[in-house]
């Protein structure tokens, strides 16, 4: 399964990529929402997207809204992975169309557990 990881921090992308690679996922990377949209156009085998909230250019919230407004991306499962940890942020992300939400700092188990949740609810 292919996962797109969107975060403006290269270190954070590397950390998430290592966790996902170890769990058997193929990982693609993007540094902001706009670059991520270009990735989605280029590769059509992506199923899951992990997206940070605060990024320069198109942020994660805007990215989620854009994806949800695009019928061709209806199959994508979107998970926000962000340091924003207020209830209002979680609620806003879900209302915009995110399927799951993980707060930074996170553990390996948290990320993989939530991905399991996404895959389970999809079946």
């Amino acid at each position: 399964m292919a996962v797109l990881v969107i975060d403006d921090s290269k270190a954070m992308r590397s950390l998430i990529k290592r966790i996902l690679n170890d769990a058997g996922f193929e990982v693609l990377e993007a540094g902001d929402g706009q670059e991520a949209l270009e990735c989605l156009q280029r590769w059509n085998h992506i199923d899951l997207v992990l997206v940070d909230w605060d990024m320069p250019g198109m942020d994660g919230y805007e990215f989620v809204r854009t994806v949800r407004a695009t019928p061709a991306y209806r199959h994508l499962r979107l998970m926000m992975v962000t340091a924003e940890s207020e209830l209002e942020h979680v609620a806003a992300a879900l209302a915009a169309g995110a399927d799951e939400y993980v707060m930074k700092p996170f553990t390996r188990d948290a990320v993989l557990g939530k991905l399991d949740l996404l895959r389970t609810t999809r079946e």
Partner: peptide, 20 residues
């Protein structure tokens, strides 16, 4: 803790049944 909340709890249920 945030670590406990991150593990296995669907975000939708967090918004419905928890207070910060």
């Amino acid at each position: 803790s945030q670590t406990e909340i991150n593990r296995g709890l669907p975000a939708m249920l967090l918004t419905r049944y928890f207070d910060k």
